[in-house]
């Protein structure tokens, strides 16, 4: 079975990059433009993993993680956050919010895929 990933980023460039990279790596990809959109898509997407940016309008990554963890669906789905900085404070914040792990932008395909494999399986 194919791993299905809900990828959330407000940047078109990043979304397109994630879509291309993840699709090439053999994953199913559902894209969302911010936290609110991601929550809307969550029931239909039923993802095995959520990849989310942190800085987004309407609802940011922390809000999304909190809503997923406290919601009714997929509450234990692995969530990886995409961060630009490798600053430890952000990682700690993401972890405290309930993120499973993180990926530092810019990413390359190998590390992106192996990080995904570390936290999600079907």
């Amino acid at each position: 079975m194919t791993l299905r990933i809900l990828a959330v980023d407000d940047s078109l460039t990043m979304r397109e990059m994630l879509r291309q990279t993840l699709t090439e790596a053999g994953f199913d990809v559902v894209l969302a433009i911010d936290g609110v959109d991601a929550l809307d898509r969550l029931p239909d997407a039923d993802p095995d993993l959520i990849l989310t940016d942190l800085n987004m309008p309407n609802m940011d990554g922390f809000g999304l993680i909190d809503a997923v963890r406290k919601g009714d669906l997929a509450t234990r789905v692995p969530i990886l956050v995409l961060t630009t900085e490798s600053a430890a404070t952000l990682k700690d914040r993401a972890r405290a919010a309930g993120a499973t792990g993180w990926i530092t932008k810019p990413f390359d395909e190998v590390s992106l895929v192996s990080t995904i494999r570390r936290v999600a399986a079907v």
Partner: peptide, 24 residues
Amino acid sequence: PSPTPVAKLSPPAGAAASPASGAG
């Protein structure tokens, strides 16, 4: 446990914020 203050989770999460998507 992380010494950093725990992240203040962002405002109205979940369904409460959903209507915004309708206005998108």
